[in-house]
Simulated scan of single mutants.
Amino acid sequence: MHGLGELELKVMDVLWRSEAPLRVRDVLDRLPPERRFAYTTIMTVLDRLHDKGWLERTRTGRAYRYSPARSRGEASADLLREVLDSSGDAESVLLHFAASVSERESELLRRALEKGRGQP
């Protein structure tokens, strides 16, 4: 995702997969085991993601519980919107993208466009 570092993306992935808000320790325990991170490192990443607007947090006792401010789909759509707005040639970007999609993705796009136009 644009604007996210490698560790930030891993942390967001943990939170997007969770059905409930998580504490720092919960996130740390659910990160892939290929590399161990310090508790304070994950606490700092969560704090920065909150400051950037990627996360919401609520205080429970002395700890915060974090949850995504947007779904993975919403964040991805925002990224696509940003790419189109900054490209200077949205038509070309969309044409190249459309040429690369699978049949299933093409059908999903057709249905989304019809739904957006108010068609069943």
Rank of each mutant, 00 (worst) to 15 (best):
D13F: 11
P32I: 00
D51C: 08
L80Y: 09
D51V: 12
F37N: 02
D78F: 10
T60N: 15
A20V: 14
A75E: 04
V14H: 04
S86P: 09
S87G: 03
A90G: 06
H50E: 12
K10Q: 14
R35G: 01
S92N: 10
S102Y: 08
D78K: 06
T60A: 15
E19A: 11
R35S: 05
R30Q: 10
E56W: 06
D89R: 02
S102R: 07
L9K: 11
K10A: 11
A75F: 08
L80S: 07
D78C: 10
V11Y: 00
E91H: 15
S87V: 04
S92P: 08
V93F: 02
P120N: 10
Y64D: 09
T44C: 09
V93I: 12
E8W: 01
R111D: 09
R30P: 01
A77Q: 12
V83W: 07
L4W: 06
A77Y: 08
L113E: 08
K115F: 14
A38R: 15
P33A: 07
P120Y: 09
M43K: 13
L79N: 13
R65Y: 08
S86F: 12
A112S: 10
E56N: 12
A69H: 01
R111S: 06
H2M: 13
L95A: 10
L79Q: 14
F37K: 05
A98T: 14
R36F: 08
L28H: 03
R17N: 10
L109P: 05
L79V: 15
L9Q: 14
